[in-house]
Design a protein around this nucleic acid. Structure first.
Lengths: 280, 280
DNA sequence: TCGGCGGTATTATATTGTAATACTTCTTGT
DNA sequence: ACAAGAAGTATTACAATATAATACCGCCGA
């Protein structure tokens, strides 16, 4: 995402603010700083200054300034010999900042751990963000691919059981909007991307009470997820449990894993307030 | 830490830069934005604008601008009725940004999972940051206090087995410096804070090959940690395993948990490059 | 040895962030 | 129920700060 070409407003030295409401309350520098951090999200190795500039759409000077600031603040680390940058441990502070105050994660934690012991499986909690699900709490048991074990990992909602389960228990219009807004590039050979088919999976999840995907996000993976509901009956998260073929068959998973996911999700549900703030 | 009173350089309209090197390359606005985020780190509930201003040392206007920007970017959530702010899920993106590129976490993950199965215990990986250890990878098995299960959690290095284990395998001067720089307020009734005693525990860890703390950071907790070493034999992290009394006794833990922690740590050691960049 | 690429440092300029202030909306105590 | 005050929101004039152009330096490969 090249981000909107900074409009760089027209009139010279003209006191802005008359135009529209509070545009003055937005600190553009802050956004640029975060753009630099985001540039590292889906990157294998370190990044040089030039690469950072390319990926963020900032010019070399800006990349220099923000990169330098981020390093001084301890969020980026600089290899003195290669002069390249990489994310620093300090970024994990934000993980704590979010999670320690999250009532959902707090109440879920014990239940998820219990659930993971039943069949010795991984158990995850995920929430919806834009068109993705983001895994917030992970209780890993088998090592799947490494990135798949990392908290904060995002996956497209439309092709994951977690996303399907959550969308199934949201207003239909919202679910449709998410699917439409999704960039539906197949993750595996079997990923279902066609709109009608995706919507059908959501409907199915609503009827079953859980979502299931076989090889949808990752080959050989059977993923099952059940929605966590608030007091109004709207999904605010999902308990997701992946198992792997050939150790498990889809039939076994439906029979054993689905009830476990649903029971776990149910035990977490309803404790939360009606609906967390939807920011403007 | 109230952060250094923004010096706000003297001379009016004086072109700065002549003074010293690259002060121009530091974007102060970015730091302020992060200050706002940091204000939420050790906070129970939501924060109002005024509270944010107080905690960050920014004035009301600044708090307004940064808070607003952060909300627009999706890192803060605003409760429309109370008008108070809270951290948003999106913060977990940084967790992924850091971890997915961390070779240490990657190689450790499988070993930690295995280790957690041996006695059905929690197993953590932690790294040193300033005077703290920060837990980077957590494989939870029993629910201890919730915050203690959250990745990104920090604890003072001087009174944790992880910190002790790491400092034991660092240059002595560095260890001493960390202990001296630590704000040694007791975490439990039994926390050892006296300099000589703390240093003795570090020496002991060097001799034993592992660090151990009984009720040091939390009552009833026995914490054992073994250092992960790089090719030079310097500690870069620790494998930490907590068990709880009365299920476990210190003697049992030394006999069973310590070898497990050491073996796990050893299996991860040496894979990493000599020393990750020490930023200037 | 040279060429060029990537990173670093410097500085004039005006755009952008700033902070003072007025306005509005909630909260609280009587 | 009302008033007083606290907390949040909006507006604007000002200049300090971020900007970006450019020059410099050092490294790598040819």
């Amino acid at each position: 995402m090249p981000v909107t070409e900074a409009p760089r407003s027209a009139r010279q030295t003209a006191p802005r603010g008359g135009e529209r409401g509070a545009e003055t309350l937005f600190v553009a520098s802050l956004e640029k700083g975060f753009r630099v951090l985001e540039a590292f999200r889906n990157v294998a190795g370190d990044l040089g200054l030039t690469e950072i500039a390319e990926r963020t759409g900032l010019d070399k000077s800006a990349a220099q300034r923000f990169t330098n600031t981020l390093q001084k603040l301890g969020y980026l680390e600089k290899d003195p010999s290669s002069r390249r940058y990489r994310p620093a441990v300090r970024l994990l502070d934000f993980s704590y900042t979010y999670l320690h105050q999250d009532r959902l994660a707090e109440t879920a934690m014990a239940r998820l751990i219990e659930a993971s012991k039943v069949y010795g499986t991984t158990v995850n909690l995920c929430e919806l963000i834009d068109t993705d699900v983001i895994y917030t709490v992970r209780i890993p048991h088998e090592k799947a691919s490494f990135p798949a074990t990392v908290p904060g990992r995002r996956m497209p909602a439309y092709c994951t059981s977690g996303g399907t389960a959550i969308m199934a228990f949201r207003p239909a219009a919202e679910a449709a909007a998410i699917v439409d807004a999704s960039d539906r590039v197949p993750m595996t050979d079997d990923t279902i991307v066609e709109r009608r088919a995706v919507m059908a999976r959501i409907t199915e999840a609503r009827e079953l009470g859980f979502g299931i995907g076989v090889g949808q996000a990752m080959p050989n993976e059977i993923s099952i997820a059940a929605p966590v509901l608030n007091a109004r009956g709207e999904a605010i998260a999902a308990v997701q449990i992946p198992v792997y073929m050939p150790n498990w068959t889809p039939a076994e998973a439906r029979q054993k894993i689905a009830p476990l996911a649903m029971e776990t999700a149910r035990s977490i549900s309803g404790i939360l307030p009606p609906e967390a703030a939807r920011s403007a």
